[in-house]
């Protein structure tokens, strides 16, 4: 039997320097009807995200921008070099239009501004996953 690759859970990595946000995104994914997603890691900064991504090969990433050590902009570049097909959803408080456009130009597939509702995040994640 040939397994359908679309039926396999998508591997998700959550990157944010706030524990509150990492936990919240994780809860939305696990309790919010995104059954086809498997959480493979939580990273507190860009450098940690790159290390985890090397080991776990995520397909979807939620990415904060303002973080210590390596910020989200640099991390997006590193992740796309490492995993060119990765789908990145930026989740950031930098809610001005030019930041959102810059993130998309860098290769992110979507942008959610903080503060966000569970529904905002769920819909954005679904959009990004469908873009796979």
């Amino acid at each position: 039997m040939n397994p359908n690759p679309k039926a396999r859970p998508m591997r998700l990595l959550i990157v944010d320097d706030s524990n509150m946000i990492r936990s919240r995104i994780s809860r939305v994914v696990q309790n919010g009807g995104l059954a086809n997603v498997s959480l493979v890691g939580l990273a507190r900064n860009g450098a940690e995200a790159v290390r985890i991504a090397r080991a776990t090969q995520p397909e979807v990433v939620t990415m904060d921008l303002t973080m210590p050590e390596m910020d989200g902009v640099q991390c997006i570049g590193e992740l796309l070099r490492l995993l060119p097909k990765i789908n990145i959803l930026v989740v950031s408080a930098l809610s001005d239009k030019s930041t959102a456009i810059a993130a998309l130009k860098l290769g992110a597939r979507g942008f959610v501004a903080k503060p966000f509702s569970d529904d905002d995040l769920r819909m954005a994640l679904l959009d990004v996953m469908e873009a796979r």
Binding site: S18, M20, T66, S92, A93, S95, P115
Partner: peptide, 29 residues
């Protein structure tokens, strides 16, 4: 209200820091 059960001091500080981050970041708009 966000479903968090870890109410340790470290997590309270993290949360208030994230509120400041959100207000600061939103000011760019």
């Amino acid at each position: 209200l966000q479903g968090e059960t870890d109410l340790s001091e470290g997590n309270l500080l993290d949360a208030v820091g994230e509120v400041a981050n959100t207000l600061g970041g939103n000011a760019r708009k």
